[in-house]
Design a protein around this nucleic acid. Structure first.
Lengths: 329, 329
DNA sequence: CGCAGGTTTTAGAGCGCTCTAAGCAGCGAA
DNA sequence: TTCGCTGCTTAGAGCGCTCTAAAACCTGCG
């Protein structure tokens, strides 16, 4: 910076003004500084800038797992908005371990990020609380009581209702749910499924098959149904992977989808829209969730205010795995 | 830091020594400093540390697109190793535009990252060259002449040879390739396919159908084949998405896979292993590539040396979309 | 010509750390 | 007693920037 100033015949401070695109710099000096900076290859040092200005224009994002496309797309949404508003992202991944997640968060805090977005964090509520005491925090996909942060969460109930309404409108009554175990989204989906069925006076025809969020769980559930006394006419899978597992086994067993049985997934991951799969599923606007999280965070960074919970509405994407049940079924 | 020092009854510098885990600090003082730091919630400021030490222990990663699982997995590999060796990742995404990629890179350089990993960058060679002049650079998936950087590239030829060997061993001769257009990997795969077929004296039976790396391109190619005078007995798709497109259309048209026609994909993305798809495809060790890139970078950071090109060997994953051609075919 | 009122420029004190060189015990040898 | 060690510990000068307060430079007007 010194060099640029000397070369351009101005003071260091003026160079700083120009680099920060501040007003009140005469046009010719600005041009001169820019010319010299470009010529000698001067690049402002973000570290020094942040140290002096106590602002980093950087937000931290902690992902449970970078490889999970679901999380990656949320991060993509954050990134998109961040680059639009001139913020930089510092990314930490937890590798599906609470310990690594904690240390990723600690590192981000050492970098004095202006705020942190936690995507479906695994770490303990206490860790989150103490982070929230230091810096603005927004959480996506998980809500923790008593933490001064904002939340972006899916309206699971609405998602499940969409599925039930769709299946009932087609004429289904005997509906099975392959659940997602204890992972995020599992319990609420199962609960709302059961309650929804009861509210529709179909409590007796509701069947829950335990599983988890994997394709294998779907395959196992399909086999169980095939072996059972009476097949349901429709299956609501806890997520698309489970649905894919169902699809694979039914396909091999010669059970037609949606002829014999309808299948609905959840998440609308990339496989769902493949022509070969064409799964009816519940879409969660991942990218929008990421964007929303950053909006909340930026707002929180410059306004101290109360906690906000933003409920995201999922939508049903109807493809080819659902149809009216067979007359004989 | 001042506060910690005062509270612990030592000098600032001693606190620094403790925080950096340097030797030559008596055990009781170290314990005292750590205790005080924990109690008053002191967290070292990474900015100030980097400013003073001229090292950031941070590497930048520029991804063309965070949402593309292929790139995300490479980044995941980088992340994994980084967290193991105590490095932090600063991530920038290009959003599939050279312009945004450039600016992401510029920001990373302002943060004075110790090195940069460019994953399949779109930007011009000149931009890369000037970055490489400032900081150690490793590129993944693209090789640029005359740039002082390291490279991790896929041995495309080998991947294609694996496919051809597999198909020929099954007895196929009339083989089509749906190409990937001009995107990364497209031209080499097409070239090696044609050359490989010629070398096997099957040049006359090789067919190339233009496409790109999308499912739609696969679907369109499938329709073209169905309308054509003579179906190939096997199709080598430029990537798995294209293969999925083929699969969808063939399925609907009642063409059995692998009965009537065998299909091979490329990339081994998550859809490929689904039971319902079960695609024979070429796997690229994405995670390992990310790790390798970081290894090269770390080595380059502390040893000035010549450019290294690391060739990554892909492997064939045989699943259920390939079989011997029908006798009559 | 002087001066208010504005704009443009500058000096200089930090931001929170690292790192060098110097300081200070304590101890055995000269 | 003095000196030279070893083994900690400490003072203090930066790292490259921002930002405040003040100085310098402009108008235009009385």
């Amino acid at each position: 910076m010194e060099d640029v100033a000397r070369e351009a015949g101005v003071s260091r401070a003026l160079v700083s003004l120009v680099m920060r695109e501040q007003p009140n710099v005469s046009e010719d000096k600005r041009a001169r500084v820019l010319e010299v900076a470009g010529r000698i290859g001067y690049r402002p040092n973000a570290m020094a800038r942040s140290l002096a200005s106590r602002r980093t224009r950087t937000v931290g994002v902690v992902l449970d797992d970078l490889r999970n496309p679901f999380f990656a797309e949320i991060a993509g949404g954050v990134e998109e908005l961040a680059s639009k508003v001139g913020y930089q992202l510092l990314l930490g991944a937890g590798g599906r371990q609470a310990r690594r997640e904690r240390s990723a968060l600690a590192t981000l805090l050492e970098y004095r990020v202006d705020g942190v977005i936690l995507v479906s964090p695994r770490m303990r509520a206490g860790d989150i609380r103490s982070a929230a005491a230091e810096v603005p925090v927004v959480m996506v996909g998980r809500q923790v009581r008593g933490v001064d942060a904002d939340f972006v969460v899916i309206d699971e109930r609405h998602g499940v209702e969409l599925v039930l309404d769709h299946l009932l409108a087609l004429g289904h009554q005997r509906i099975a749910h392959v659940d997602g175990g204890s992972g995020a989204g599992g319990p609420p989906r199962r609960t709302w499924f059961l309650r929804g069925m009861r509210e529709r006076r179909l409590g007796a025809k509701a069947l829950v098959i335990p599983g988890d969020f994997t394709e294998e769980a779907g395959a196992a559930a399909a086999r169980r149904m095939l072996d059972g006394p009476q097949m349901p006419t429709a299956v609501f899978a806890a997520n698309d992977l489970v649905a894919a597992g169902l699809l694979g086994v039914f396909d091999q067993a010669g059970v037609e989808v949606p002829g014999h049985v309808s299948i609905v997934g959840y998440d609308n991951i990339s496989i769902a829209h493949l022509a070969h799969v064409s799964l009816t599923t519940v879409d969660q606007p991942r990218s929008a969730m990421g964007q929303m999280a950053l909006e909340l965070l930026l707002d929180r960074i410059d306004n101290r205010r109360d906690s906000i919970v933003r409920l995201v509405e999922p939508s049903l994407v109807i493809r080819s795995t659902t149809a009216a049940p067979r007359a004989g079924a």
